[in-house]
Computed example of a mutant assay.
Amino acid sequence: MEARPVTPELTYRDATDADVDDLVALIESAYRGDSSRTGWTTEADILEGQRTDPEGVRDVIRATDGKLLVVERDGRTVACCQLEHRGDHAYFGMFAVNPEFQGAGLGKLIIAEAERQARDTWNATEMHMTVISVREDLIAWYERRGYGRTGRMTPFPYGDERFGIPQRDDLQFELLVKKLG
């Protein structure tokens, strides 16, 4: 008999202002700098500088039409994601999993919970997200979760260092969409 991975006990809660510093550190560790290279979601080769800042995280926490979910395991923050209500659909963003836990199946569980909450809380019929179009491995991961590429692009905010310092000139965001059943 093959060993099966044990499903970790995860808890989900809405972020508060008290979580801001921990969440900024988590998001930065998942996407920027050398610490992000231990996971597979790093953007360190395409963007330098910050991924977010306390003000940006605080804005998501305080948004009246959404929330920032904190995901904990054994009392430790291991991931987060943004959910925003936008009419008949929800927007999924600011998704970060601690690099130590990437590749262990947590991402699948977290995105499924985010989809469930969007459906149950807002009756959302679709989940939307934007991904940097050159992140083929990340887009493929989302496609395996049922998200489809739309080909609809929006420009990367070049010159706005709040989103990082681009290391290439071809960055843009592609809209991915999934129907929620």
Rank of each mutant, 00 (worst) to 15 (best):
V134L: 14
T77N: 02
V97W: 02
T41K: 12
L83G: 00
P99S: 03
K179D: 12
L176E: 02
A114K: 02
F163P: 01
A104V: 05
Q172M: 10
G103C: 03
R119D: 11
E9N: 10
G33N: 08
G164E: 04
R162E: 06
D53L: 13
F163L: 08
Q82I: 11
R144V: 12
R86K: 14
E9D: 13
W141M: 12
V24M: 07
C80Y: 07
E43A: 10
E43L: 13
G151E: 09
A124V: 11
R37L: 12
R76C: 11
R145M: 15
D120A: 13
G151K: 09
M127L: 14
F156Q: 01
L47F: 08
G105W: 08
L68A: 02
P99W: 02
R76I: 08
V71K: 00
M153L: 12
W141N: 04
T77F: 01
E48T: 15
V24Y: 01
E55L: 10
G146D: 12
F156D: 00
Q102F: 03
D59M: 14
V70I: 07
R13Q: 10
R32F: 04
G75D: 06
K67Q: 06
Y147R: 05
P99L: 05
F95H: 02
G159D: 10
I132A: 10
D22K: 12
A90S: 14
Q50N: 15
R51F: 01
G39N: 05
R149Q: 11
Y12V: 00
R168Q: 13
S36P: 08
L26W: 02
R144D: 14
R37G: 07
T130E: 10
G107E: 02
W40L: 08
R73W: 12
Y158N: 13
F173A: 03
T121E: 15
S133K: 14
P99F: 03
E48R: 15
L175N: 04
R152N: 08
P5T: 10
I132K: 03
E2F: 12
D19L: 06
